[in-house]
């Protein structure tokens, strides 16, 4: 057992991180997702990781970095695709919110009968005037077209698991970036003649954030290792768990970071809100923490009414 990044994984992480730092500054990120961003990420190999022989453990390392850099776009749905793709849970006739509709080539739906494909051109909906996350445009599609069946039910649940994992990895990245931002601010912002990070109330907020991020990273990487080799653990339990702790880490760290920044944390200018808003949105994708917690509880020994 070596439950730590290998040298190759460290290189992979550092490589993608420096690429993102160089090419995806917050200034650019704040302009939102567009085709050039997709092409560039595609070129960097982000969407072909599995085809290029990378493991799930490698993939979560990369997706964590995408989260850390707050890169917008349907990054999870486009994994493994040669086009801009998003994937949602739903079926024909549903009223749904679709993210990034204007940039999509196609939308996949995961339903009971399998995976269905809907060409983006056949999706019509009104764009939200005021999207929660300014970098995630949202369209209200009143009636989802049925689409064409392109994958079986078991392929659908496989896909759902993979996308859940990559989403959780992004959530870890958000949560970790929020720690770094908060610590950086706490070291430099002074009140009462000293850095606010020397006040225990602030220090403890930072410590709690760091623990959340670290536990979430371990959970997500464990789930990825188990997906790579299902004999090493309970695949579904670890996956549900990863989405739970990563989602909670991202949201809690977003809220806590807002607090650490004080009034600045409530401004449009400081990036914290972009991270928190993304965290809230990712929480709605592929199952909320509560729905996954229910699923974990299903895996635990069953409730036995005769005991009560």
């Amino acid at each position: 057992m070596n439950f730590d990044l290998t040298d190759d994984q460290v290189a992979l992480r550092d490589g993608i991180r420096s690429h993102l730092e160089g090419r995806f500054s917050m200034e650019r990120v704040r302009e939102g997702f567009d085709r050039s961003m997709f092409d560039e990420l595609s070129e960097a190999g982000v969407f072909s990781l599995r085809a290029d022989g990378f493991s799930w453990a490698d993939s979560v390392v990369v997706y964590e970095e995408l989260g850390r850099a707050c890169v917008p776009g349907p990054l999870v749905g486009s994994a493994g695709a040669d086009a801009v793709v998003d994937v949602i849970e739903g079926r024909g006739g549903d009223a749904v919110w679709v993210e990034h509709l204007a940039s999509l080539d196609r939308l996949l739906t995961i339903g009971d009968d399998g995976i269905r494909e809907i060409p983006a051109a056949s999706l019509v909906g009104a764009e939200a005037d005021w999207p929660l996350d300014p970098l995630t445009p949202a369209h209200r599609v009143e009636s989802l077209p049925a689409g064409e069946l392109v994958g079986t039910a078991s392929e659908a649940s496989r896909l759902l698991n993979e996308l859940t994992l990559l989403t959780a990895a992004q959530q870890v990245g958000l949560s970790a970036a929020l720690v770094d931002m908060s610590v950086g601010y706490a070291m430099t912002r002074e009140q009462f003649g000293r850095p606010i990070g020397s006040f225990q109330a602030v220090k403890h907020m930072c410590a709690e954030m760091a623990v959340k991020a670290e536990v979430a990273r371990a959970a997500v990487q464990a789930a990825a290792c188990i997906m790579d080799d299902p004999s090493t653990g309970d695949e579904m339990r670890s996956l549900h768990g990863a989405k739970i702790v990563a989602g909670e880490a991202a949201i809690m760290n977003g809220r806590t970071a807002t607090q650490v920044y004080g009034g600045m944390g409530f401004t449009w200018e400081v990036d914290v809100h972009l991270y928190l808003k993304r965290a809230w949105i990712l929480e709605t994708r592929f199952g909320s923490a509560d729905s996954h917690a229910d699923a974990v509880a299903e895996i635990l020994p069953p409730a036995d009414r005769s005991q009560r």
């Binding site: 990863a242 739970i244 974990v296 635990l300």
Partner: peptide, 9 residues
């Protein structure tokens, strides 16, 4: 379920 997930993490 939440607690089990955190403990797993």
């Amino acid at each position: 379920g939440h607690l089990a997930a955190e403990m797993d993490g």
